[in-house]
Computed example of a mutant assay.
Amino acid sequence: MRYPAEETAEKHQRILEQASILFREHGFYGVSVSEVMKATGLTHGAFYNHFDSKDDLIAKTIAAASSKALASMKEAEHTPEAMQEYVQNYLTEWHRNDPGTGCLMTALASEVAREPSVQPAFTRHLKGVIVSLMAPFAKSKKRNVRRDAIHKISSMVGAIVLARAVDDPVLSEEILREVRNSLE
Rank of each mutant, 00 (worst) to 15 (best):
L133W: 00
D168M: 09
I15Y: 02
E81N: 06
F122K: 00
S155V: 04
D55H: 14
T40Y: 05
T92A: 08
M83C: 06
C103S: 08
S172K: 02
L22K: 06
E81H: 03
M1C: 09
E174C: 11
K38F: 02
I150V: 11
L42V: 01
R147N: 13
E25V: 12
N89W: 03
R24G: 03
R146A: 06
E184G: 12
V112M: 02
R24T: 00
A76M: 04
S72W: 06
I21C: 04
F47L: 05
V36S: 01
L176T: 00
A64G: 04
A71P: 06
R177F: 11
G41S: 12
H151N: 12
S117E: 10
F122T: 02
S182F: 13
G41Y: 03
G100L: 09
V118M: 04
P116W: 01
T8M: 08
V129S: 04
A69R: 05
A76H: 01
K74F: 09
L16I: 11
S32R: 15
D98E: 08
T106D: 08
V166P: 09
S72V: 01
E115T: 13
Q13R: 15
S34W: 11
A138P: 00
L16V: 03
N181Y: 08
Q88I: 05
I150H: 06
S32V: 12
K68A: 13
E77V: 13
P116Q: 09
V179C: 01
N144H: 14
R143P: 13
I21D: 01
L42S: 02
K38Q: 10
Q18G: 03
L171A: 14
D148I: 07
R24D: 06
L126P: 00
Q119L: 15
M83R: 02
V129L: 07
R24S: 08
N144M: 13
E93Y: 03
T43G: 15
L22N: 00
T101H: 09
Q18A: 12
L22R: 01
I62D: 01
R24N: 07
Y86A: 10
L183Q: 12
A82I: 00
G27V: 02
T123M: 09
I150D: 04
E173D: 12
V145R: 02
L176C: 12
S34Y: 10
T40K: 05
L183G: 10
D148S: 13
E7W: 07
D168S: 06
M134L: 07
R2Y: 08
E85L: 09
T106L: 01
T106P: 02
V31L: 15
M156V: 03
P4Y: 05
M156C: 10
G45K: 15
R180P: 01
P99N: 12
N97P: 00
V131P: 00
K152R: 14
Y3M: 15
V33S: 02
Y86E: 07
A163Q: 04
